[in-house]
Simulated assay, not measured.
Amino acid sequence: MANAPDDQNQPGTDIPPTPLLDRDSNLRGYKLNKMAMSLGAPESRQAFKADEDAYLRRFGLDDATRAAVAARDWHEMVRLGGNLFFILKISAVDPVPITSIGAAQAGMSHEDFLKERLGK
């Protein structure tokens, strides 16, 4: 790019307030992602619904991660290393519209997100 700042496209450049998916965040979110991926099985979804906290503890999730899942704090789950494709499995248990997750990621209310981002 002809007029790009010197630090643009350099490793480690911050993109506030976007959580970056890198090696460290992948390692940090491994247990969360493994738990979320397990929800693809009907018996796992039943166990999750029956006793969510016990199910999360089975995967060794720490307090902060369990709290983020319990609150369905999508942005926090991503910040903690959750991969959005796996986190969507959690949203399917409730079910939560994907636009609600998009709104959370954008820091907007669901209504504002629908109006501003989707024109609805």
Rank of each mutant, 00 (worst) to 15 (best):
L27A: 15
G12V: 02
I98T: 10
E116W: 06
L32R: 00
L84F: 14
T99Q: 05
D6V: 06
Y30E: 12
T99S: 02
V69E: 00
I98R: 09
N3E: 15
K34L: 09
N83W: 14
I101Q: 00
P16C: 08
S38F: 07
A4H: 12
I98L: 09
F85I: 12
D62H: 02
P16E: 15
E76R: 13
P5Q: 10
N9V: 03
D51C: 09
L118F: 10
F86W: 12
G119S: 03
E116G: 05
I15A: 10
T18H: 12
N26T: 09
W74E: 05
L80K: 04
A68N: 02
A2W: 10
S109W: 04
R28W: 07
F113S: 06
A47R: 13
M77D: 07
R57N: 09
L88E: 15
L84E: 11
D62W: 00
N26E: 14
L20D: 15
A4P: 01
Y55S: 05
R66A: 05
L20Q: 15
E111L: 08
D14A: 15
G60M: 05
Q8M: 13
D53C: 09
R58G: 08
L84Y: 13
R72G: 02
P97A: 04
D62V: 03
S100E: 14
F48W: 11
F85L: 15
A2T: 08
A103L: 00
T65S: 09
D22Y: 10
Y30W: 09
G119A: 06
H75F: 13
R57T: 13
G119P: 03
D62Y: 04
D73V: 06
V93E: 12
D7H: 14
L32S: 04
A36H: 02
R66K: 09
G12C: 01
M37A: 12
